[in-house]
């Protein structure tokens, strides 16, 4: 029982990272119509920048500045590379472009910071176990869950109640009409891309505290995030979060009984969802069909 709880909780934490990644991916997917293959790259950028800055700013400063810088770099990339290809109707090109970016970011990270894993120091205050029986529930892990919840709720409030959020949602529905109503959709899409990358960066910093830093760390997180979106349903941000948590939890539980299948299980779940409910748990019917 202890072991099951241990693995389930580990899985949940992993799921939190998937959820954060998937949230950013889904944002970019819905308004920018881009599958951001470089999303793992932005995660790595956020994490390594936080690592580099933490001696100067402390953990807390790095936690804020790392993701923000990832977001700013996202803005620059959107402006320089992605904006020129919006007009191409074939999604192939943005896919290939971000794929290339992912290779470049991974390689440069390895060149700058080295291939060896690096640890991100987490303050003792939040790093001690909360209870002795459940030693695996460290303060840091609860903190990760808390921050993710806060970020998700923050994003929800932003999309629901601010003018910017309303415009983003309108653009997701019908970009042309939104543009015709006088919204600068270029700025809107750029900001949205930046937000998505900010979430990737946040996932990176938080994940670095648990898993440590390695150049390919983004690669191992991006595929499950795709699965999270497919299971949760394309077009639904809440679905992406739900999907992420679900697959993390499932992987954790399977680890207890049959560790070799812990990765494969999330892809099997995806196949089942696709077969039974092709639009995903919370997805809209008819999207991309």
């Amino acid at each position: 029982m202890q072991l099951l709880l241990f693995n389930a909780f580990n899985g949940l934490i992993q799921g939190v990272f998937y959820a954060l990644m998937a949230l950013g991916l889904a944002l970019i997917l819905s308004l920018n119509s881009v599958i951001n293959m470089a999303h793992g790259g932005f995660l790595v950028i956020g994490a390594y920048l936080a690592y580099t800055l933490s001696p100067y700013l402390g953990f807390w400063g790095a936690l804020i500045v790392g993701p923000l810088l990832a977001g700013v770099i996202g803005l620059v990339v959107e402006r320089g590379l992605i904006r020129p290809i919006y007009k191409r109707s074939d999604p192939l090109y943005s896919l290939l472009l971000t794929f290339g970016l992912a290779l470049i970011i991974e390689d440069l990270t390895r060149t700058i910071w080295g291939a060896q894993g690096l640890p991100l120091e987490v303050p003792d205050i939040i790093n001690s176990p909360v209870s002795e029986t459940y030693f695996f529930i460290t303060g840091y892990r609860l903190f990760v869950i808390g921050i993710t919840a806060a970020a998700s709720i923050g994003l929800y409030l932003l999309l629901r109640y601010t003018l910017l959020g309303i415009r983003i949602r309108a653009g997701t529905r019908d970009l042309e009409t939104t543009a015709a109503l006088g919204v600068n959709i270029y700025k809107l899409r750029a900001l949205n891309f930046g937000f998505g990358c900010l979430f990737a960066g946040l996932a990176g910093v938080l994940a670095a505290g648990v898993l440590g830093l390695t150049p390919p760390m983004g690669n191992s997180l991006i595929m499950p995030s795709f699965v999270a979106i497919i299971i949760g349903g394309v077009g639904s941000l809440f679905g992406a979060v739900l999907g992420g948590l679900l697959i993390g939890l499932a992987a954790g539980i399977v680890t207890t009984y049959y560790p070799a299948a812990s990765e494969a299980v999330i892809y099997l779940m995806m196949l089942i969802v696709l077969a039974v409910r092709p639009r995903g748990l919370l997805g809209e019917e008819g999207l991309f069909e």
């Binding site: 699965v227 497919i230 196949l271 696709l274």
Partner: peptide, 30 residues
């Protein structure tokens, strides 16, 4: 696996085919 992807288009087709590929990757690795 064809029937799971054949109704999909564009970006979604790409996402599903990538993710399905990973299933086999992990089966082989593990």
């Amino acid at each position: 696996l064809g029937p799971l992807v054949m109704r999909r288009r564009g970006i979604y087709f790409a996402m599903i085919t990538i993710a399905i590929g990973q299933l086999f990757y992990f089966v082989i690795v593990r």
